[in-house]
Simulated assay, not measured.
Amino acid sequence: MDLQLKNKTALITGSTKGIGYAIALGLLKEGAKLYIHGRSIESVEKAIEKIKKEVPKAQVKGIPADFAKVEEVNNLLKTIPQVDILVNNIGIYGDRPFETTNDKQWFSDFEINVMSGVRLSRHYASSMRDKNWGRIIFISSESAINIPEDMILYGVTKTAYLALSRGLAKLFKGTNVTVNSVLPGPTSAEGAIEIFQNMSKETNATMKELQFEFITKNRPSSIIQRFSEPSEIANMVVYLASPLSSSTTGAALRVDGGVVETAY
């Protein structure tokens, strides 16, 4: 199937690894022109080198920016003034016990997980409206609905993305600009793989066994009973980025393996 993405220009935040990198590969294989983003020039250059081995004809450039620093975000926006497709993927997470997580940590995580999407979407909204075409996609999480008790802060930031994407979709009413959010479940991205590899060394259990244990203990409602692969999340995002998804907007689309206990 031709997703009609040839010569569309996309920016994916946090795309040097994990889900963001998988989305980058998916868009590039469909012929899109792409800007990947990482926090350091080294991570960006390494990712581009890897991409060109997998997609030799890839039209890809990179830009580093620390999204905790507004001046670096502003520099990114000056360097890339317009895009057709924006994927707000950058995000941080961690064990943040509610009773001991201070205001500084809340504001720090909110700055990256929420304000990054606010700033970039606000910047690119006008040019998308002027062209009467655009795609804005927020990578949220099933944790936006199933708030984890040990990661309340993370869940709150991901819930904010659902409200932001729905409101923006309504803002673009009657245009060919669509806005959606995607909710992955547990995914075998680099961060999770590293954690399970370390646990495997300590316990002698295989990574597959440890992941299954995590699912049965922490996400027992999972229907697929396994971690998703980044490419499985990327498939949904690439479709949403394409002209073929023109009647899908204002939606929160789950790629969570059935973790969320609702039929809608």
Rank of each mutant, 00 (worst) to 15 (best):
K8L: 11
A10Q: 11
S15L: 15
K17H: 14
G20F: 02
Y21G: 10
I23A: 14
A24L: 15
G31I: 00
A32E: 10
R39M: 08
K50I: 09
K52T: 10
K52P: 09
A58T: 10
I63K: 15
I63S: 12
V70D: 03
E71H: 15
N74W: 01
L77C: 10
K78V: 06
T79F: 10
I80C: 06
I80A: 00
Q82I: 00
D84V: 13
G91M: 05
P97L: 08
T100L: 01
S108V: 00
F110K: 02
I112L: 08
M115L: 08
S121C: 04
Y124D: 11
A125H: 01
S127L: 03
S127K: 11
R135D: 10
S141G: 13
E149Q: 12
I152T: 15
V156I: 13
A160P: 12
Y161G: 13
Y161N: 09
A163T: 02
L164N: 12
S165G: 10
A169P: 00
L171H: 12
N180S: 03
S181N: 04
V182A: 06
L183C: 08
P184C: 01
G191Y: 02
G191D: 09
Q197E: 14
N198I: 03
K201Y: 05
A205G: 03
K208C: 04
E209A: 15
F212H: 01
F212K: 03
T216H: 09
K217D: 15
K217S: 15
S222D: 05
I224F: 05
Q225M: 14
R226F: 04
F227G: 04
F227E: 08
S231F: 11
Y239L: 07
T248G: 05
T248W: 09
T248L: 14
G250I: 06
R254V: 02
R254N: 08
V255W: 05
G258L: 05
T262P: 13
